[in-house]
Design a protein around this nucleic acid. Structure first.
Length: 448
RNA sequence: GACCCUAUCGUCUAGCGGUUAGGACACUGCCCUUUCACGGCAGGUGCACGGGUUCGAUUCCCGUUAGGGUCGCCA
């Protein structure tokens, strides 16, 4: 039987990083088995769910590169979708639910109570076969012993999650339910419901949760809980996906950076770890740097320009070759696109603000004659390239009796305003003689 | 309160009865480089605790502790 898995998020206005990981594992399993990945929107809470909230999810999945074979095409619940098992929005499936509830009612498996409809739940322990956790025997809690039956349709006529989730999985032919471990206990209800509908439940695989680095639950309020954080902070999607794969699963062989194609080949449900994992931003950061180093210059360029635009730097005002050359000096240096501005903003500013603390020492009075000499030497060079500038600066150091460092640091500060950045001589070359001399003149003037 | 899941360096993990317990991130030195980063070398830190089973337990079983989850007319 062909594998059919699904990701069934509720459009709350953001995509939780844990949800993204659940989507990823479903997608991986579908791709690994040659199965079908279905996207279903659980928008039963009409008041809260908006089209924009659905778009957030769709865009998040697209950003990650998790394409779905069936499901919505846009956030419009009544719009077109792909696949023949729709609708893929629960808000459009009321008739299916109504029919199913009628069937339960007529067979005496559900009953009305205070305007709501309750399902007659098994009083016996339910065994949950789970591909990750193993067989779990779920007994009733003391509270459930008081009242084992549970509401499937509210008194206002709205069906509840447990009901619609099961009906949809059943009608959409879902073969494997891969979801967060927070659903493990509730699975007893789902299994009972499937049987009430006369079918055996799908296979279950409950994956461990992602916790904060301190081991606490990651809630909506925690920084980093939303996938958008990583989009905005300048992470590359392939790095985020790779990192997420490493949480609760391992490619073995002491490997960390693994191309998604290989993950698809290696991935399988039984190897998923059973314990929760903490989200380690340090490792993601490192991994992101690895992906940046290997990405094409064009892709780096595109994402870096975007990062600069985010802080108000419009690179379009500059010559394309200049922008490319400038960004090339940063590619091997940054680990995050949000770091690009601090490495490259000086290329795109006419006036440089010098970091005050560094200026105190670098712009000391005794440095001024040496820097003036360096400025004039730079003005004389025939070819304004890194090698020439390197030898020129060293020559000035010798003739002025200063150490190279005494010239290097102020030069960096004069031209970039910062104490860290790209390789000095290369950055000078890219800036060009005109800008460099301008910046020297202005700084010399400020030194009084 | 009840029920369920889990437990290897600070973090992610390899391990599936006998290993000097391996790797990665992070951290600390040194080298390279007169910025930062990369790279190279070196280093410290771990099988939660207590009982079993076994010739032998990180590995199997039980308990304790700790963490997480669930018991909604939320999803």
């Amino acid at each position: 039987m062909k594998v059919r898995v699904r990701f069934a998020p509720s459009p709350t206005g953001f995509l939780h990083i844990g949800g993204a990981r659940t989507a990823l594992f479903n997608w991986l399993y579908a791709r690994h088995t040659g199965g079908t990945f279905v996207l279903r929107i659980e928008d039963t809470d009409a008041a809260r769910n908006t089209q924009e909230a659905v778009e957030v999810i769709l865009n998040g999945l697209r950003w990650l590169g998790l394409d779905w074979d069936e499901g919505p095409i846009s956030g419009d619940a009544t719009g077109a979708s792909k696949g023949d098992r729709g609708p893929y929005f629960q808000s459009q499936r009321s008739e299916n639910y109504r029919r199913r509830v009628e069937a339960l009612l007529s067979r005496g498996l559900a009953y009305e109570h205070e305007g709501a409809i309750r399902f007659k739940m098994s009083r016996e322990p339910v065994v949950i076969p789970d591909l990750v956790v193993g067989n779990v025997t779920r007994e009733l809690t003391d509270r459930e012993k008081l009242e084992p039956d549970f509401v499937i349709v509210r008194s206002d006529g709205q069906p509840v999650f447990h009901l619609v989730n099961v009906i949809d999985d059943l009608e959409m032919g879902i073969t494997h339910v891969i979801r967060g471990e927070d659903h493990l206990s509730n699975t007893a209800k789902h299994i009972a419901l499937f049987r009430a509908f006369g079918v055996e439940p799908p296979q279950y695989a409950h994956i461990p949760l992602i916790l904060n680095i301190d081991g606490t639950k990651m809630s909506k309020r925690d920084k980093g809980a939303s996938l958008m954080t990583y989009v905005e902070e300048g992470y590359a999607p392939e790095a985020v996906v790779n990192y997420l794969c490493l949480l609760g699963w391992s490619p073995k062989g002491n490997r960390e950076k693994v191309p998604i194609k290989e993950v698809i080949e290696l991935f399988d449900l039984p190897q998923i770890l059973r314990h929760n994992a903490r989200f380690d931003l340090n490792k993601l950061h490192w991994l992101n740097g690895e992906y940046i180093k290997e990405m094409s210059g064009d892709r780096f360029h595109e994402l870096a320009v975007h990062a600069l635009a985010r802080v108000g730097i419009d690179t379009n005002r500059y010559d394309l070759q200049y922008v490319k050359a400038a960004l090339d000096t940063c590619k091997q240096k940054v680990k995050l696109f949000s770091e690009v501005p601090t490495f490259a903003d000086f290329y795109f500013k006419e006036e440089i603000d010098h970091k005050a603390q560094a200026a105190e020492t670098d712009f000391a009075p005794e440095n001024k004659p040496r820097l003036k000499q360096l400025r004039d030497a730079f003005a004389q060079v025939a070819k304004f390239d890194a090698d020439t500038l390197n030898t020129t600066l060293k020559g000035v150091a010798v003739s002025s009796g200063a150490s190279v460092g005494v010239l290097v640091h102020p030069t960096r500060l004069i031209c970039t305003g910062r104490t860290v950045g790209p390789s000095l001589y290369h950055l000078l070359e890219v800036l060009g003689k005109e800008r460099v001399l301008q910046r020297f003149d202005r700084a010399l003037e400020q030194m009084g």
